[in-house]
């Protein structure tokens, strides 16, 4: 097809396999940076290897302490912790979702004026930056030990999570649909109900189900700082070296997480 003579041999000599990163200076910067970091990281880690080596033998004893799991001896404690975790999950998810909706609306650039937008984005940033445990420490200091602190923590985390993802979805809606609704002379709330909500609903439901799942998982650790839930039971059993009970608690957590995951997966498949 080409009119001029094409030198395939020369082209083949010049050809190199494409590198992973296109720009040469960036490529070498990344390689050097990774190498430098690896050196720094491994030279600064202090690991007590003799203690770690003992770990193998300890692990054996520890794991044998796990078997057989004992559901019975502390059955009441496990049940109470579980019930606490579940109630915390339900209440925090409910409150969190309700509160996250206005924040999500405020954090959507296509709906909210700039000051409101910045304020809502600020709430989201704070809620997402800190690990749930840190928030729980603060809430425990404020309202005392118990499931209420855990519930507030999870609700707060839910707001950041839901509002961020819903706001992204709202910003991605088809402007033409919202415009068509506005063209009918609708009010702002009607615009939300007819132009925005139908487009975001599947995501809203899917994320709610997903968050329910996450909240249960998180509720299982908040007990470590006294914020209630099955984590309390777990922590106590570790403290008392009742590893067979700890194993039972872990199994209960895995089973419920599995059930939650299956259920939330089912709900998400249904709405999509």
């Amino acid at each position: 097809m080409s009119a001029t003579h094409f030198d395939a041999a020369a082209a083949a000599r010049a050809w190199r396999p494409p590198p992973l990163i296109e720009t040469p200076w960036l490529r070498y910067a990344v390689y050097l940076g990774a190498l430098a970091y690896a050196l720094v990281a491994f030279s600064t880690i202090e690991v007590n290897w003799t203690r770690a080596a003992e770990g193998v033998e300890r692990a054996g004893r520890f794991l044998s302490g796990f078997f057989p799991p004992d559901f019975v001896t502390k059955g009441d404690d496990i049940l109470a912790g579980l019930l606490e975790s579940l109630t915390m999950t339900v209440v925090s998810t409910g409150i969190g979702i309700i509160l996250s909706i206005p924040v999500a609306l405020g954090a959507s650039r296509n709906l909210a004026p700039l000051p409101v937008y910045l304020f809502c984005r600020g709430i989201i940033a704070i809620s997402r930056t800190f690990q749930e445990i840190i928030i729980a420490i603060v809430f425990v200091a404020m309202v005392g030990f118990g499931p209420l602190a855990g519930t507030l923590t999870l609700a707060f985390a839910t707001i950041g999570f839901m509002a961020k993802l819903i706001a992204e979805d709202i910003e991605d809606i088809q402007a033409s649909q919202a415009e068509a609704v506005r063209a009918t002379g609708s009010s702002w709330f009607q615009l939300l109900a007819w132009g925005v909500l139908p487009q975001v609903r599947p995501r809203l439901i899917g994320l709610s189900a997903y968050r329910l799942d996450i909240n249960f998982r998180e509720s299982a650790v908040l007990g470590l700082v006294g914020a209630g839930g099955i984590g309390d039971t777990l922590n106590t059993s570790f403290d008392r070296y009742e590893f067979d009970t700890a194993a039972a608690v872990l199994i209960v957590i895995i089973v419920i997480v599995l059930a939650c995951e299956y259920a939330s997966g089912y709900i998400r498949r249904q709405v999509q």
């Binding site: 007590n48 770690a52 895995i254």
Partner: peptide
Amino acid sequence: IVASRSINSLIWALILVIILGPGIL
């Protein structure tokens, strides 16, 4: 995969501190 995902890293840490001793490892 499910077992690894179900257990929060804090709980993993709790278990591993007992086995390996406290510290970064």
